[in-house]
Design a protein around this nucleic acid. Sequence first.
DNA 1: CCGTGCATCTAAACCGGTTTAGTCGCATCA
DNA 2: TGATGCGACTAAACCGGTTTAGATGCACGG
Lengths: 364, 364
Amino acid sequence: MTTDRSTEDLMSNDAERPAARPTITDVARHAGVSKGLVSFALNDRPGVSAETRARILASARELGWTPNLRARSLSVDRSYALGLVIGRSVDVIAADPFFHSFIAGVESEFSTAGQVLVLAQATPGREETATYRGLAADKRVDGVFLSDLRAGDDRVALVRELGLAAVTLGRPDVESPFPSVSVDDGRGIRAAVEHLAALGHRRIAHVAGPSTMLHGRRRAEAFTTALVAAGLEPTAIIETDFSAVDGARATRELLGLGADRRPTAIVYSNDHMAFAGLAVAQRAGIHVPHDLSITGFDDTELARHTFPSITSVATDAFDWGARSARLLLATIAGQPVDDVELSEPRLVVRESTTTAPESESARH
Amino acid sequence: MTTDRSTEDLMSNDAERPAARPTITDVARHAGVSKGLVSFALNDRPGVSAETRARILASARELGWTPNLRARSLSVDRSYALGLVIGRSVDVIAADPFFHSFIAGVESEFSTAGQVLVLAQATPGREETATYRGLAADKRVDGVFLSDLRAGDDRVALVRELGLAAVTLGRPDVESPFPSVSVDDGRGIRAAVEHLAALGHRRIAHVAGPSTMLHGRRRAEAFTTALVAAGLEPTAIIETDFSAVDGARATRELLGLGADRRPTAIVYSNDHMAFAGLAVAQRAGIHVPHDLSITGFDDTELARHTFPSITSVATDAFDWGARSARLLLATIAGQPVDDVELSEPRLVVRESTTTAPESESARH
DNA sequence: CCGTGCATCTAAACCGGTTTAGTCGCATCA
DNA sequence: TGATGCGACTAAACCGGTTTAGATGCACGG
């Protein structure tokens, strides 16, 4: 009795069942053609007569057909997704607004393409490598953005070995098969130094990023070059990990130098260190900009909202993201691509820089 | 001649072909069983004898088999991915480190689960809706995190209609079928007000987030409640969009009030507005904290690195991410779940708050 | 008038898993 | 002893697309 067939009748009410999304087979039946032909028509490939194609498209539209991404993924072996592995510790990254703008730029290119961004966070080292391997093993993405390039970065080889497409943010210092999108941030540092030199500063110091990171190193080198070009004596360059704490530490170190060696201006390798440095100076009773001029890098929103506001080098992270995405998609599509050079960073002069203190310019 | 078959012989060198990754069929052949049985064994389901199972697992290991996520996705109708749609304009979000920590927390739960995070950025409105619809239509994710809840948030209904699983960050003010993870940020605001009241402040103002956002509104309400509880007169609450610019604007407004109405303390609804407010006060020659005490919210790294450093309410965004991810995964797995209440926010007292100015406390 | 070529279309294989419907042999029970 | 049940396993369908191999019909050239 309990196995009575009549129970099945209760299930026959298929008004309950939400209308299953139509498949290509439904479209084929509706248009009276074969499944394969529908596929041809939908991907407008040759071999389908004009009227048949029209009929198929009409059927598809009428049924509200929409492609099943997973099925397509399986057969064409593509993910329609790009990956970004952020390889910094949370603390360091949390303070850096770069990625938000970058990501926004990336996404701005996606709207049209049906792409999606897969984000992973991993600290450099074993965990980072495992993350890339995981993305590749599961074929979660078709390509990745390689950001925060390091000296002798092993990710370039890794990603190539894994068979992923990629773009590098900046040019790596190792052999790379991948196109790059870069900005001449050295130009920005140079502008900052020239600006300070023009204001009469003679002792300019640099609070640099880690020398293991290419952009940190590149900025430091540009700093030295610019100093030399301005005919100034070599001054202190203090290396940091880009964090605010470390920026503060570096600043204390510089301000602790004897009066005849203490810098009258400090060029910071990012805004957050400049913020922290500003606070350190103020706490020490050193007036910015009259006793000390400072410049930041990135031109974050906050640079406009400190007192004094901070002179900073502006780069366009949004554009960086957009161009990188476009380049990566083109690479994946098999189109020939070239490296991209972004527009030059500009120095945004604000209140934190002014003429060198009297004693200094007189001393010259 | 050009169609000579011999050209095909050139292709027969398959040493070139990189060893294709083994499929379940290869494992079946190797173990001498059927494809289906391999699937059973690998998902350890009943109906496979112990020795056969062992043999199959051995074969899989020997061949280095690893599941093809796409194929699995297609047959079991799951993505093994979660989505986060950040619905703010780039400018506002760029300054907010919340998401970085939140995302890090989310990812910390993924390492074990083979999950991945899909990130999308969309400004509220049509674009945002389209983004959710897109994620659902392509079945890119199994569930989403609903952050930055708004008053009468239509995303709750949208996401349910789309058949996605979800968790809400905070409890929505509309009917919701989804579990929530919340923190009592009102408690944090209360702590700030009590702290200031204890320091003798009588005129405390609030620079609030938008009233359209639940946490902005909740904090404003908590502010009023706390004021009343402390027996203080109602004071100005200025609404902003959470951005630094708007925080600065609000601060100027408050400081522009007549001397008898100007607040001696300002409670900001986030740290970035507090930064901007600090700068505005300093620029106006108002000393913080002696003339004006201020508090922030979020306890961002920078709050430690301003001068004076900023008293702020600390919440644990990382934990928030981790708990949300765990909850969402449990929901998707069909396990019964309960709402989660995070640990209470704590007030971190720093240099930006001190006893109310003489005239004020005397006046009482 | 017949072979050839081409455009159009169908049938079926394929991607790599999961799941269902059955087959088979053997132990158990009436 | 023969029906029954069950554990272990196979074959094949299925998810929803793409792609290949062939079939069909028609126009055209010799």
